[in-house]
């Protein structure tokens, strides 16, 4: 497994307040194949914290969070099941 996999799907939740980025992630995680990576683009500080917490609760893998040049983060989640 490589450190940074190319996301199979990017969800643009920039400008959206929590819990909307998490709702979008939950709706769309099954749109990628098993072991596929979803990138959530978000700039609500709550999403930076809540996406990894969602992964822990839902047994998916938080791969990493990378700062975006224009502010916010690309938060990568690997579908586990």
């Amino acid at each position: 497994m490589t450190e940074v996999s190319e996301p199979a799907l990017t969800i643009d939740a920039l400008g959206k307040k929590c819990p909307i980025p998490i709702i979008m992630l939950a709706e769309q995680i099954n749109h990628v194949p098993l072991d596929g990576v979803v990138a959530v683009l978000a700039d609500d500080p709550a999403a930076y914290n809540d996406v990894p917490a969602w992964c822990r609760l839902k047994s998916h893998k938080h791969v990493g969070s990378y700062e975006l040049p224009g502010g916010g983060w690309s938060i990568h989640v690997r579908r586990n099941y």
Partner: peptide, 21 residues
């Protein structure tokens, strides 16, 4: 965060790494 005057969620929930919403 949406319930506080600031835009940041609770520093307690953040430090714990639990859901803030």
């Amino acid at each position: 965060s949406c319930t506080a005057s600031t835009l940041r969620p609770s520093h307690v929930l953040e430090a714990m790494g639990v859901l803030t919403h």
